[in-house]
């Protein structure tokens, strides 16, 4: 699909969502309040205990909450995976399959929540500036590069995992509950990973890599993560593996498509 069509889809998606303007404003407030509560919680907790949680001080915990917003933004861009099972069940892929477009790109572009993604990033930037005034973050440039890489690679890996789950709708129909199940693990992104037992830490980095979009990048940025070389390779491996699996599943999925309804 060429870039012009992709942007036209984004434009339509934006227009479609902004029909209900009050929802737009309310969702902005919702994100601000929701994330703010976690920052206040960690600040109050560490203030009461008058100590740090291992390598985690108030500033890095506030950063952890901000980093979660970055992943939310990426996820919103790929919101089409969440609606895929409904489209498969209702046979709604027909309109993409009989037009000269990439069905996958059209499906993702049609359902992308670009305004939500943009807003999450904007909220994150505003909060970063404000929190920087309070905690005076300091980090090295090389760590910042690794931090960005880790978030981008981790987010894409998780999105591809979600994509694979979404594609299973071609075989199993309604997979919403499976989505909820996997999503329930995403709560881990709000907590410092090093608080958990080693086994769970490995699970959250290499199996269900929630840690790669939250704790790990923050630790890299703050200079408290030791094995960044190994991590880099692991992230590339995970990303490549999930990408291959996703591409293979997509090819098989189209053969399974029943185009139900009508």
């Amino acid at each position: 699909m060429d870039i012009k069509v992709f942007f036209r889809y984004l434009q339509m998606s934006f227009k479609d969502l902004s029909v209900f303007r009050s929802d737009f404003v309310i969702s902005i407030l919702h994100i601000l309040i929701y994330q703010g509560i976690f920052i206040i919680f960690w600040d109050a907790l560490l203030g009461q205990l008058n100590t740090n949680l291992g390598v985690w001080d108030k500033g890095s915990l506030a950063l952890l909450i901000l980093v979660g917003l970055v992943f939310s933004s990426v996820r919103m861009l790929f919101f089409g995976f969440t609606t895929m099972s409904e489209k498969v069940i209702n046979g709604d892929l027909d309109k993409y399959l009989c037009r000269p477009i990439s069905p996958l790109m059209a499906l993702l572009a049609e359902d992308t929540k670009i305004w939500a993604a943009g807003h999450s990033l904007l909220t994150c930037s505003i909060l970063f500036v404000l929190l920087n005034e309070v905690y005076s973050f300091e980090f090295e440039a090389s760590n910042f590069v690794l931090f960005v890489f880790s978030i981008v690679a981790g987010s894409l890996t998780l999105v591809l995992m979600e994509g694979c789950i979404a594609l299973s709708a071609f075989w199993f129909g309604n997979i919403d509950k499976l989505f909820y199940l996997i999503n329930s693990f995403s709560d881990f992104q709000r907590y410092p990973i090093t608080l958990f037992p080693k086994l769970l830490q490995h699970f959250l980095i290499y199996v269900l890599p929630i840690g790669l979009v939250s704790s790990v990048p923050v630790m890299i940025l703050m200079g408290s993560y030791g094995n960044s070389g190994v991590l880099l390779l692991a992230q590339l491996g995970l990303l490549g593996g999930w990408l291959l699996l996703f591409c293979w599943l997509w090819r098989c999925a189209l053969r399974r498509y029943d185009s139900l309804g009508g």
């Binding site: 012009k4 339509m12 227009k15 029909v19 477009i101």
Partner: peptide, 17 residues
């Protein structure tokens, strides 16, 4: 597109083609 003016849908399909 259910909520968007039909001319917008027409322009979307025009760009697809």
């Amino acid at each position: 597109w259910w909520n968007v003016a039909i001319i917008e849908s027409f322009h979307l399909y025009a760009s697809i083609y």
